[in-house]
Design a protein around this nucleic acid. Structure first.
Lengths: 348, 348
DNA sequence: TCTTGGATAGAAAGCGCTTGCTGCATGGGT
DNA sequence: ACCCATGCAGCAAGCGCTTTCTATCCAAGA
């Protein structure tokens, strides 16, 4: 029925052990023998049985990449960079690994289940991207799962996610707080004093950190924040649109809107335009992440560029053991302020 | 060291067989016994060994989703929809499946290698998204691989990809030709007679079909196409930008630019603006796909909406055997023309 | 009371591969 | 000429789970 190692061995007139060693290339095999085996493999169209091999070797070549929303380029770009480094097929020869991305949809349960599934598959490494959920029981459950994974020899890397102490996980954290702060400082520097803020979903570290940066900048400038100036929503265009309408309703005198990310900012722009306000003449807008489309917005979006691809690549290399983890297992990745057309001096 | 089925069995005072049956729930086990087993599983924090179970049962719960470019929302949206239907974690109980996304980067070799890897893992199903490469040897290799997969019991579904005859694969094909034709007809209807076309990478079915639709519309209207009006490039913003500059150089009298997809169209808009041309007063622009950001472009993009999420969901259900494949194993999914601000009556 | 059969649980044979250890040449050192 | 590294191939014991077949128990039928 299906071709097995033994079939290949029989055809090549060698023992199964030898075939296995040829295939894995980690044990001396005479060139002539190797050739014979390879020929048999080819003739029989043999395909290694992954599960069997993983079972016997007690390791697997699976690498998991967890993302919150695969339809969001923010994650797509990181996942792409990670996967490129993992090698997946097309990487250098030998260590062919199956890099797989798992979409949690931002749900804590799904995240946990995927981690269990990966643990079940004895994954070689796991990379978790994006912000974590700040929900005590869940955070503890994830931490415990991560610890189990690292203890079992799975390399765990967090990319764009806060460190998980005592889990053995390596963390490449985005400096969301600093980026948020510099962004708002820029706006304040232009003269803005009444700034609306569209935050992401509550309970997410990313959301909190960006907001904290914003508030730190406000505080540093001695601006007292009006509670009406903050609205919460999802990390998408639609949420930005609605939140902006809400902000305008609450305080029409706002001169700037800072969004949780670029998609939200785009929605904000749409809402402002439909409200008859010009950007940035009437209201300035700022985003976060600097996704590819942000430069194409009209006017182009002022935002904070996160080196998504670079960070992902580094996370991938660390996950593969091809790069030293940062000292202490924690590194902070800074964002760069990109000043563009959507921010300007306030009216009046 | 690591907890095994036998450990659980010992703790629950039953045989390994019974534990296995409780976990798989496909054999009668007395309620009291089941409870004892579950308790032991919980206490020992037992996690099934995926490879071992896959080996013994000769099946796996892995489902592969192949995409050309995971950083592109076009694929992200489809992948997300597919994954949601596969269940992944969070789906209904029981059939928990690990839906994994594999990024081929558009490379034929990677595509093949991933298929082999999935075959090796004895994947339960595979969904291939996006256009195929029109390169004879490679196409044949893929077809042969697909045949082997279906023969081995793996369900293969093509989503947004032309049918692969005699492979046993189910195909949900996008009507790229028809969409392209209607789009260009719209432009012609507005009065355009000199239309530039920015095609995607050659050798891709999607590229060819969209272009064919465009040319069919031209031919139907009796417009003779100037070879200078077609430029080829990648499916991204940058390519659109450069291609547009090139088109303008070749024939400044063009009144419309049709792009291979929305990202390309965005790049085209940027190039036109920088060239001092107004959209659509001077030049109309059209995209394809209707990705989320297209409606936020200024002016909003006229494009062809492809029901990415719907098609993906359907592909996912078919892959899981939860929906009947279309008759003949082939279904065509139409796109809908979305007329928006970026297209208008030509000047003069 | 003895038989019969339904409902459960267990024994054991693999699933296909990896790998420690053994076996056997070969060739150089002394 | 003898011994021992050295190089290469095979044996066989699992890896942890599933599943067929068999054993057991108990209630119901004869």
């Amino acid at each position: 029925m299906t071709v097995t190692l033994a079939d290949v061995a029989a055809r090549a007139q060698v023992s199964p052990a030898t075939v296995s060693r040829v295939l894995n290339g980690n044990y001396p095999v005479a060139a002539s023998t190797r050739e014979r085996v390879l020929k048999a493999v080819d003739e029989l169209d043999y395909v290694l049985n992954g599960p069997a091999s993983a079972l016997a070797a007690a390791t697997s070549d699976l690498v998991g990449i967890l993302v919150n929303d695969i339809a969001d380029p923010f994650f797509g770009i990181m996942a792409s960079a990670i996967q490129a480094e993992i090698g997946g097929p097309g990487g250098r020869a030998g260590g062919e690994r199956l890099a797989v991305v798992c979409n949690t949809g931002g749900s804590p349960e799904r995240e946990l289940t995927y981690l269990t599934l990966l643990q079940r598959q004895r994954a070689a490494a796991v990379v978790l991207t994006g912000g974590a959920v700040e929900n005590e029981p869940h955070a503890a459950a994830v931490a415990s799962k991560l610890r189990k994974l690292t203890e079992a020899g799975t390399r765990v890397v967090l990319c764009g996610r806060p460190p998980a102490p005592d889990t053995g996980a390596i963390a490449l954290t985005f400096d969301n707080r600093g980026g948020g702060q510099r962004l708002t400082e820029h706006l304040i520097g232009l003269g803005h004093r009444r700034l609306g803020y569209i935050a992401g979903p509550e309970e997410r570290t990313t959301t909190r950190h960006r907001l904290e940066g914003h508030r730190a900048a406000l505080a540093a400038a001695g601006i007292e924040e009006d509670p009406r100036w903050t609205v919460w929503g999802r990390y998408d265009r639609q949420a930005g649109y609605e939140a902006t309408l809400e902000l305008l309703r609450r305080d029409p005198s706002l001169t700037a809107v800072v969004a949780a990310n670029d998609s939200v900012a785009l929605g904000a722009c749409a809402a402002l335009r439909e409200s008859g306000l010009r950007i940035p003449a009437d209201v300035s807008v700022a985003g976060f992440d600097d996704l590819p489309f942000s430069v194409d917005a009209v006017p182009a979006l002022t935002t904070v560029r996160l080196p998504l691809a670079e960070a992902g690549a580094r996370a991938g290399r660390i996950a593969m053991g091809r790069e030293e983890p940062p000292p202490g297992g924690i590194a902070t990745v800074r964002g760069e302020l990109m000043v563009r057309g959507s921010s300007g001096v306030p009216r009046g």
